[in-house]
Design a protein around this nucleic acid. Structure first.
Length: 444
RNA sequence: GGCCACGUGGCGGAGUGGUGACGCAGCGGUCUGCAAAACCGCGUACCCCGGUUCAAUUCCGGGCGUGGCCUCCA
């Protein structure tokens, strides 16, 4: 069965046929580095990592290029840097650099803990200003962009198919527009490619004076740099579909004489926490870093994959416990198995638009070899220590207690043995008596 | 208001025009001093109303409900 992927452009599942099987190319919108990544940010990181792994499986590790950008220039970052500087007498640009470096390091640490492979390239916006300027110049020269009050704007009316990705017409958008109409815009929907910077804001020299790029242009410029004008897959969260992705398509195709940009657009669904939208005011805003303090990264990963990537998903503690138990059972089975095999039905499920819940169901039905193969393909280590409880426990003390309990049991002093068991339980330690002796686990 | 998703058993979550995925919980059993764990077994679910059909949870129309986007957001 060929790989089939749901394409937002056509709203159907399509057979995936790479432009070049020797170099399958995918671009995914990465983080804006100004704050800790939250659990919602983890979703695309994990989902597109699975796709990366499936593509590598199908086309070979050396034949897939995965680009995930790092947005390190952005007005949210600027605002945060000014806030962070406070009353300190240091240049805001130094604070900004410090902020983006720290946030990026944290992000990379977080997603590594989730078992994701490093993308082939992780380009940073600030290191590709020249490419962005060049693309903007091309757009201006081609009549798709104009200059107004130090800003360079993309003229949406110059692109008749503007709105094709999000499926909305220019008329609809203008009718429902709640955007501020800047005087230098010809059309309210025109968006910024370049804008002027003041002394306290990062800026680069350009044909239009000292300034900084708009949000959308970085992805277009960096995708072209590493993947060419046309490539196979572009991914990201569904909230980015409009305006970000719509604008990327418009810019890139306008700059490339209407050669298609990404052939397949993929969007992951949103994530709720315990049935509610995640927000700071509700107090249910969870960062990856916070979760990793309580849960192994691979548990987060499995929990994420139990929902189909396009479906909205509800993140719950109950679900996390279930995921943890499942992983423990699997790892206890898989550990001694040396050989691996990819199950046909498992691969078929993944090939059907990355149906990970179905793939996981197949794993439940599989023998050890196919389980090991499936776990490996999905990016699980199968190493029991990796899913050990984070809680600090005194293993020597527990071993001593188990010994004392078993001695009491042998002497048929069950009152004493039960007392020891209850005492351990009160500390969150659950005992399991098996044919091979007594083992223990941390209660979840 | 516009555009777009989704509504499956106690819960999570696939899927299908006709034989009740899968997991968790629950129930019964084996095992155990007793529990737990493990293993075995157990389930008359598809929002409502019309339509098409021999047959609809699955297709079509309408309704209701939930959510997302339209503004920074994964």
């Amino acid at each position: 069965m060929p790989l089939r992927l749901y394409n937002t452009l056509s709203k159907t599942k399509e057979d995936f046929v790479p432009l070049d099987p020797k170099n399958v190319r995918m671009y995914v919108c990465g983080p804006t580095v100004y704050d800790y990544a939250h659990i919602g940010n983890a979703r695309p990181a994990i989902v597109f990592d699975v796709l990366f792994r499936v593509l590598r499986h199908l086309y070979g590790d050396a034949h897939v290029t995965y680009v995930r950008n790092i947005t390190d220039i952005d007005d949210k970052i600027n605002a945060r840097a000014i806030e962070r500087r406070g009353t300190r007498n240091v240049p805001v640009l130094d604070v900004l650099r410090e902020l983006t470096e720290q946030t990026l390091a944290q992000y990379l640490k977080d997603v590594a803990a989730l078992g994701t492979l490093s993308p082939t390239v992780s380009p940073r916006a600030t290191e590709h200003i020249a490419q962005m300027v060049a693309m903007i110049q091309t757009l201006v020269a081609a009549g798709h962009a104009y200059v107004g009050e130090g800003h360079v704007l993309f003229e949406v009316a110059s692109k008749p198919d503007y709105g094709k990705l999000a499926r909305r017409s220019l008329d609809d958008m203008i009718a429902g527009a709640r955007i501020e109409v800047a005087p230098y815009k010809k059309n309210p929907m025109d968006f910024v490619l370049w804008k002027p910077s003041d002394a306290n804001t990062p800026g680069w020299e350009s044909p239009w004076g000292r300034g900084r790029p708009g949000w959308h242009i970085e992805c277009s410029a960096m995708a072209e740099e590493y993947l060419g004008e046309t490539f196979d897959i572009h991914g990201g969260g569904i909230d980015l579909m409009f305006p970000h992705h719509e604008n990327e398509v418009a810019q890139s195709e306008a700059a490339h004489k209407e050669h298609p940009f990404a052939l397949i657009w993929m969007h992951n669904g949103f994530l709720n926490v315990e049935g509610e939208k995640m927000s700071k005011s509700l107090g249910n805003f969870v960062t990856i870093d916070e979760l990793l303090a309580d849960w192994p990264g691979e548990v987060l990963r499995l929990n994420m994959l139990r929902s189909h990537y396009r479906q909205p998903m509800d993140w719950t503690v109950a679900g996390m416990k279930e995921s943890w138990n499942t992983l423990e059972r699997w790892y206890s089975v898989v550990e001694p198995v040396a050989s691996r095999r990819i199950g046909a039905k498992f691969l078929e499920a993944l090939s059907d638009d990355l149906n990970t819940p179905q793939a996981i169901a197949e794993l439940h039905k599989s023998g050890p070899e196919e389980l090991a193969g499936g776990l490996a393909l999905l990016g699980f280590s199968a190493i029991p220590e990796h899913i050990a409880a984070k809680k600090a426990v005194d293993t020597v003390e527990i071993a001593r207690a188990i010994e004392a309990r078993n001695a009491a049991r042998k002497a048929k002093n069950f009152k004493e043995s039960d007392r020891i068991r209850d005492e351990l339980l009160a500390q969150g330690i659950v005992l399991k008596d098996g044919p091979g002796g007594t083992t223990w686990d941390v209660k979840k």
